[in-house]
Design a protein around this nucleic acid. Structure first.
Lengths: 140, 140
DNA sequence: CGAGCACCTGGAGCGCGCTCCAGGTCAAGC
DNA sequence: GCTTGACCTGGAGCGCGCTCCAGGTGCTCG
C-alpha cells in the first residue's frame, strides 16, 4: 500500500505549507507570519527552500489562537499564553489561571450580548406593533 | 414644593450638560461630540453660551447607541440607523429590518462565544487533570 | 478682580491588528 | 530556457474609533 500521497520521500517532508495552513484555519498567511514575528507562534520549521511547514499540533494551536482572538483576547495576551505553553509542564497552573480569567471574561460578554439581544427584541416588537396598528406610537 | 433643584429658571434651561450626559451613559464627552459630527446623533441643541444640552430622549438614544456599538455594529451603520430614526415614521419598517439583521448577528456572536466557552472549559478541565495526577499528559 | 473650571472648535495623533508592497528566491511545467 | 506561482523578508500603510491637543470663551466663586 502507498503510505501517503504527499509524503513518499525518504527525507520526510512533513507538515503543510502556509497557504494550506491558512486554508485550514481561516487565518490569513500574512497573519500567520505576523503571529510568528510577535511570538504568538513559536518559530515555524522550514523546508529545504526556507518555506514554512506547519505540523498538526501547530495547526491546532492556530485554531485555538483564532478562538481566543475571536473572543477579544489581545494578541499580546495570546502571545503570553503561548509562551507559557512553550515553556512546558511547569506552567500548567498558570495557563489554567489565564484561561479561567478569560473564560469569565467571555461569560460576561455572553451575558452582555444576551441583554442587548432582549433590548433588540423589545424594540423590534415595538416597531412591529407600530407597523400594524400605526397608532399608539410614542417616540422611538 | 420646589419643582426641581436644577431647573428653577423662568427661561427653562432644559436638559443636561455633556459632562452629565457622559456620566449617565458611560460614553466619553469626546465620543459624544464625535458621534454628533458623524451623524450618529442629530445636532444637539445648545444653551445661550453655545454649550450642548442633552434631553432625556437623546440620553436614551445614546444608551441604545452604546448597546449597538458594544455588539459590534460599526459607527457608520449606527449613523445610518439613527438617520432613519430622524427621518421619522415612514422608516419604521426599514428600522425594524436593520435591527433584525443586527439581532441575527448578535445571536450568532452569542453562539460563537458559547462554543469557545465550551472549548475553554474542556481545556481548563484538562489542565486541572494534569495538575492533579501529573501523568497522562498528552501535549497541550 | 482673578482663578478655576467646564465647555467649545478643528484637526492631529494613536493603538490595535493586521494587510499590503517591493523586490527577491525557488520548483515545476511547457 | 522561460514563465508562473507560491513563498520569502522588512517595512510601510491602513481602517476603525475614538482620544488628545492647542487655543479660546464664558460662568461662578472667593
Amino acid at each position: 500500500m502507498a503510505p501517503d500521497a504527499t509524503t513518499n520521500d525518504s527525507t520526510a517532508e512533513t507538515g503543510v505549507s502556509i497557504g494550506e495552513a491558512s486554508a485550514r484555519t481561516g487565518v490569513s498567511a500574512d497573519a500567520l507570519r505576523y503571529y510568528e514575528r510577535i511570538g504568538v507562534l513559536a518559530p515555524v520549521p522550514r523546508d529545504a527552500g526556507g518555506r514554512r511547514r506547519y505540523d498538526a499540533a501547530t495547526i491546532g494551536m492556530i485554531d485555538f489562537v483564532r478562538r481566543l482572538r475571536s473572543t477579544g483576547m489581545g494578541v499580546e495576551d495570546v502571545a503570553a499564553y503561548a509562551g507559557l505553553v512553550r515553556r512546558g509542564e511547569g506552567t500548567v497552573a498558570e495557563r489554567r489561571a489565564v484561561l479561567e480569567r478569560h473564560r469569565d471574561h467571555v461569560a460576561a460578554q455572553v451575558e452582555a450580548l444576551a441583554e442587548v439581544l432582549s433590548v433588540l427584541d423589545r424594540k423590534i416588537g415595538h416597531y412591529a406593533d407600530v407597523e400594524k396598528g400605526a397608532a399608539l406610537d410614542c417616540d422611538d
